[in-house]
Amino acid sequence: MQRSLANVFNLGVKELRSLWRDRLLLLFVIWAFSGALYTAAKGAPDRLHRAPMAVVDEDQSTLSQRIVNAFYPPTFMKPSPIGLPDMDPGMDAGRYTFVMDIPPDFQRDVLAGKSPSIQLNVDATQMSQAFLGSGYIQSIALGEIAEFVQRERSVSTPALDLAMRMRFNPALDNTWFMGVMELINNVTMLSIILTGAALIREREHGTIEHLLVLPLKPVEIMLAKVWAMGAVVLLATGLAVHFVLRGALAMPVTGSIGLFMAGCALHLFATTSMGIYLGTVARSMPQLGLLMILVLLPLEMLSGGMTPSESMPEVVRFIMLGAPTTHFVSFAQAILYRGADLSIVWPQFAAIALIGAVFFTGSLRRFRAAVGRMQS
């Protein structure tokens, strides 16, 4: 047993040295847990910010100017006054996302009790801005028209006073959510890539044959890759939580960082085993990249991070119970956002441990079969 542990440790150190010499892959790891994490969190289109807008004011009335002046930064850029012939060319050139056309005699028709229409042209290629902005513009314009007709800015008192309390994210800051989800995605992606690439790199360089002539067992070779690549990703995760999530993004982590890191280690046990399995299937790095597309997209999109699991079909929810990312997302949100302890997240921990054991056993059988073919 002592000799086997020494073999696993020494082989793991060899993997770390090999990764250190692969500067491009090492740079990719650093970027994934720093710049990529920050830009993904800050670049999330959760709200409008300086949306370009133009107005064709054919009425030139007090009401029309009041509507135009209601749009201002930072939600919208100051509306550009344009003529009717400039509307279509401006949208074709992509200079405006929204163009509002206020028809002639608009104020007179409003005061006469008629129902005039304002035309709003939306560049729907900007999907997130188009969806959010059209609702914002309608609400703002209707509010200004109602206040103009009433001649005062009155606030109606509802029959029921609904007191809303935003728990765990009072400011509704979407960067907190996107930062954690991007961290989870990068942990999954890097752990699979590093272990799969390590196996393929040894096959391409011919060093796997050197290992097979040594008194080493396949399980020792596999465990060395699991702990070495898992340790790299775990270290990067800890630094990302401290410097990016809590530092750059100012996200208050209410739960135990140690408990989160322990769950992350269990998740890495499962995903690194998946990486070795993919490394035995793929014959080259390009093939591994293609397999990663087939594996990562379902893991990221159907794990409950991008869309709630409750919104998915029942069969998809049942299938994704066998994916470690589903349980990783669940306990990461519970610990980091809601301050959950082990008594709450232990079912997710147990599920990931079971999934990891199944993946490790399957990968070990596949790896032994591949080793047997090489030796024969």
Rank of each mutant, 00 (worst) to 15 (best):
M1N: 14
L5R: 15
N10C: 10
N10L: 15
G12D: 14
K14G: 13
L16C: 09
W31K: 00
S34D: 04
S34Q: 04
G35W: 14
L37A: 13
K42F: 04
K42D: 10
A44P: 00
P45C: 07
D46Q: 05
L48Y: 08
V56A: 01
E58W: 01
I67G: 00
V68N: 01
P73S: 12
T75R: 01
K78Y: 05
P79K: 06
D88W: 11
R95T: 03
V99Y: 06
P103D: 09
D105G: 07
F106V: 12
R108M: 14
R108H: 15
P116T: 10
S117Q: 13
I118E: 05
N121C: 05
D123L: 05
D123R: 03
A124W: 05
A124S: 07
T125N: 08
Q126A: 11
Q138F: 03
G143K: 10
S156V: 00
P158N: 09
A159C: 02
L160W: 00
L162A: 08
F168T: 12
A171P: 01
D173K: 07
N174Y: 09
I184W: 03
I192L: 15
G196I: 15
A198P: 04
R201C: 02
H205N: 12
G206C: 07
I208C: 02
L211T: 08
L212A: 05
L214Y: 09
L214K: 14
L216P: 02
P218N: 03
V219Y: 08
A224M: 05
G230Q: 06
G230S: 11
G230C: 08
V232N: 10
L235Q: 03
T237G: 01
T237W: 12
V244D: 08
A248L: 12
A248Y: 13
A250Q: 15
V253R: 10
G258I: 14
F260Y: 15
A265G: 09
A265I: 09
L268P: 08
T272S: 12
M274V: 15
M274P: 01
G275W: 00
I276L: 15
Y277H: 11
Y277P: 05
S284G: 09
P286L: 13
L288K: 07
L291A: 15
L297G: 00
E300A: 10
T307R: 01
S311I: 00
F318L: 08
F318R: 08
M320C: 07
M320Y: 03
P324Y: 02
T325M: 14
H327S: 03
L336V: 15
R338S: 14
S343G: 10
V345F: 14
P347K: 07
G356E: 07
V358F: 03
F360A: 12
F367N: 03
R368Q: 10
A370G: 01
V371Q: 00
S376N: 06
